[in-house]
Amino acid sequence: MKARDCRYERARSLQEALDLLHRHGADARLIAGGQSLVPALNLRMAAPDMLIDIGALDELRGIRLADAGGAKRLRIGAMVTHAEIARSRDVALYAPLLSLAVKHVAHAAIRNRGTFGGSIAHADPSAEFPACALALGARMHIASRAETRVVAAEDFFRGLHETAILPGEILIAVDMASIEEGFRPGFAELARRSGDYALVGLALQGKPLRGRTLFEAVAPVFFSVGDRPIFARAAAQILMDASVADDTRIRLAQAALTDDLNPPSDPQASSATRLHLARVLLGRVVAEVLEMGAGESRDA
């Protein structure tokens, strides 16, 4: 099947893109890298009358470190490709979780075209970057003709392909606090084949206490287990609970995922399988993050 015929406009500025979006309203869809939208068009799961191409908007490009009230924040333009994330030294230094995650995003060809903002705005519950954004406490910069507003990641993802972006708005950038001293990233996913959407995935950033299984702070976010990325709060509480014995903490956190997750069943894996795999991933990622901490302390 091929896409339904539709009109196409390539915007030359953000203002023009916003004007086009305003003029065509609900009949229009934005197209960035097209790596999710074009397959959806070809399967006719999407059939807009109008495509507004934002690929030429320089305002949406670039990765840079911004000073926001004395704190450093990494700002990633919506049109930054996955491949640019993978190559970026700033991302590796200030948001290393993204550097870990990007290797798992689809295939090289898709990483060359697909965009960070596209992934965030598309809000696929199986995608890596929305989960990372939530784990990193990212903020989404959303432009309309009237203003640019900022929405926190925890308020941004509303459901399956549903976000806080309103009609007439465009996600222009995402920013996140630079990783703080002592914090470490961990990422793992289980996909049947390299580049497939994961059966279960976990993006985590936390500050482990040396020589213990205890975290001063930790944000474990699972994906492919619900209609949006899910912050595992019960598990996080246990990982930060000093009153729990060190040798039982990880096991208890794994058990607590029952409270955090209620994964859907599909032909690939049942809910019980996904919950089991989520527990395995939590154990592995936490162990990896703790080991990383231990390794660095040895080096020091």
Partner: peptide, 28 residues
């Protein structure tokens, strides 16, 4: 390891796309 036509109890094919019907790929 991968390929299977999955049907619902009513006989509806549930994985009729190349994203859902897994063929072996070079990486694996």
């Amino acid at each position: 390891l991968f390929e299977e036509c999955i049907y619902s109890a009513e006989g509806q094919l549930l994985n009729g796309t190349m994203a859902d019907y897994l063929v072996p790929m070079a990486s694996e």
